[in-house]
């Protein structure tokens, strides 16, 4: 059986904790989301508007809003109405918080970061 270099690369890049692989492929599938995950890992009880979260993360609100909404859809974040203002915060689900912690901790390893970047770029194609 012939193994192509693409297959080999894919196998190599998939070689990580399956929970984290799924997290990267299906939840944190962009660099803005990655940035947001780092921010919420470091500041886990932040609850604020899109505009303020974008400001804290040093990003543009228009770019951050769709990413936050997708993280809400994926169950990573929660969106609550405070009066008439949508406010975003990290999900309070302990399993999801553990996953975020494990992802950011794993990112300290350069090999893991390379794999994560590979998957995110593939998602963006």
């Amino acid at each position: 059986m012939n193994v192509t270099s693409d297959d080999f690369t894919a196998r190599l890049m998939n070689d990580m904790d399956p929970r984290l692989l799924d997290f990267i492929k299906n939840k944190v599938n962009s660099f803005i989301k990655w940035d947001l995950m780092r921010f919420f890992y470091e500041n886990p009880n932040t609850a604020d508007t899109v505009e303020n979260i974008a400001r804290y993360a040093g990003r543009n609100a228009a770019a951050v809003k769709p990413e936050l909404d997708e993280l809400v859809e994926a169950g990573v974040m929660e969106r609550r109405m405070v009066g008439d203002m949508p406010v975003y915060m990290l999900s309070n689900d302990p399993e999801m918080r553990r996953l975020v912690n494990d992802f950011i901790t794993a990112c300290e390893d350069r090999h893991f970061r390379v794999k994560a970047v590979y998957h995110i770029i593939r998602q963006m194609r």
């Binding site: 500041n43 009880n45 932040t46 609850a47 604020d48 508007t49 303020n52 804290y56 609550r80 405070v82 009066g83 203002m85 406010v87 915060m89």
Partner: peptide
């Protein structure tokens, strides 16, 4: 302990509502 970061505008409305953050 909970270290909560938010803004005055959110805090104001949050505390006005029942079951706020």
């Amino acid at each position: 302990l909970r270290v909560i970061m938010t803004s005055p505008e959110v805090t104001r409305r949050d505390l006005e509502s029942m079951g706020g953050i």
